[in-house]
Amino acid sequence: MNKNLKITAQLASLAVLVAFGYQNCAPGTLNSKSLASTSDSTSSFSECADGVCEVVDQKVVAVSNSQNTLTSMLQQTGVTNPSNRTMNTYGTQGTKISETGASNTVTAPMWVAITTVASEVCNDLVNQEKALPANDRRFFTSIDFTKGFNMMSAQAKEDSIRRLARNLWARNESGQEKILIRAAVDEAFSGSTAAADTDKAAFFICTTMLSSMKAHAY
């Protein structure tokens, strides 16, 4: 779990770097670049290569503020009964999350806090889903939690990524995002045969996506 959280935190930090690096922008305004599959592009201007398009636009960017972060996470994941641990974590981490949500208030400690809260929400989500028959689940429909990670097919991972993207990011994932997440989870759990690592892999995917900038920026 510690290794997973470390990797997740690194990925989250990477997401922030990608979003804000080399932008040279005034506070609150961003030359944003989102990676989108061609079918998801809604901008009139895009640069495409190898089937992956960069959609370039310029808009005001803000993030969820400390008051709204947990509300958004619960709405996005549909966790109906957040655990006491989740609530307590939010209680202690919330002060590190931007009060205003202004883009120039985003800091690394803030994103670590968001990742920490996201990990608890995802823990609740995985537990919620595991308790349901596969057909009744919303995100991990193709994952057999009784089997080891090595039995988790690529299709199962990609299906979960797609489902989580639609709820957490309000769009489909791009090809590049899918590759990135799959590579990360494969690296984290490569060679594992333990059923417990299947839980962790689901948790890992969820946390990576829920703690990403896209889940909180607008």
């Binding site: 969820s64 709204n68 509300t71 958004s72 639609r166 309000a170």
Partner: peptide, 12 residues
């Protein structure tokens, strides 16, 4: 919806 309420909803 997000701009008015401050909350992100699932796209579906």
């Amino acid at each position: 919806f997000r701009a008015i309420t401050g909350v992100s909803l699932p796209i579906d």
